[in-house]
């Protein structure tokens, strides 16, 4: 597979949130604002990079029947490293994200990449995959956090969007708001995917029509 294809596959076609609907716990739990979503995504990217890289390096050395405990140990180690680093150098964000950082361990999206990609591909490809998947996951978190922050509090990244008088829409800040906003975002993603597909099919039709014309011309 081409490298840009690996990236785009992780970022869009096989996006953790939009396509696989995995990692819902951090997605719904921390996306009350775009900033929270971004840092949660960044923490996940770091863990994913570390685990994909190490798993791809040790592939072949780990016997098949103990691979899951081995991967989980590797993932848990990187999660703890990120947890301690955030506690040390980003103390306030660490307090905000709280329990959701250690919970990255059980984000099935990460174990999924170790199992489905890193254990079968080279270290370089696995890093590209981690960047693609991680960027796609972060994009989804920031998007959902941004939508909820703008509509819920009238702010984006802490800056006022609609001015002082905006009434807080509690529904969107509370957990049900996450589900509702996610539903609309998924509908939007499906619309985009469908129009992409239409365009692709239209192009294919045009090509085949073109070749038929050519045959017709040659026949004449």
């Amino acid at each position: 597979m081409d490298r840009s294809e690996v990236f785009m596959d992780g970022f869009w076609h096989n996006n953790t949130i939009f396509a696989q609907l995995l990692g819902m716990c951090p997605l719904l739990g921390v996306t009350t604002s775009a900033e929270n979503g971004f840092w949660m995504g960044a923490a996940t990217v770091l863990v994913l990079l570390g685990s994909n890289l190490v798993v791809s390096l040790v592939r072949g050395m780990i016997p098949k029947n103990v691979r899951i405990p081995a991967y989980i140990t590797i993932i848990a180690a990187f999660v703890t490293v990120v947890d301690m680093a955030m506690n040390a150098w980003m103390h306030e964000m660490y307090l905000t994200l709280g329990l959701f950082i250690p919970l990255i361990v059980v984000n099935c999206a990460i174990l999924g990449r170790a199992e489905a990609f890193a254990s079968k591909n080279t270290a370089f490809d696995s890093v590209i995959d981690a960047i693609g998947i991680g960027a796609g996951f972060t994009f989804a978190l920031v998007l959902l956090g941004g939508v909820r922050e703008v509509l819920g509090q009238g702010e984006l990244f802490g800056f006022s969007v609609f001015g002082e008088g905006y009434p807080d829409v509690l529904m969107l800040i509370l957990p049900p708001g996450a589900f509702i906003a996610l539903g609309f975002i998924l509908a939007g993603v499906n619309l985009i995917n469908r129009s992409l597909q239409h365009r692709r099919e239209a192009r294919k039709d045009a090509l085949s029509v073109g070749s038929e014309d050519k045959i017709a011309v040659e026949a004449l």
Binding site: P63, A76, A77
Partner: peptide, 19 residues
């Protein structure tokens, strides 16, 4: 199997100790 898991655990522990 035992050696592989042991090795992974030792390396993870070392990484955490250093961090």
């Amino acid at each position: 199997m035992v050696l592989a898991l042991l090795l992974v655990a030792v390396i993870a522990a070392a990484l955490l100790g250093i961090t």
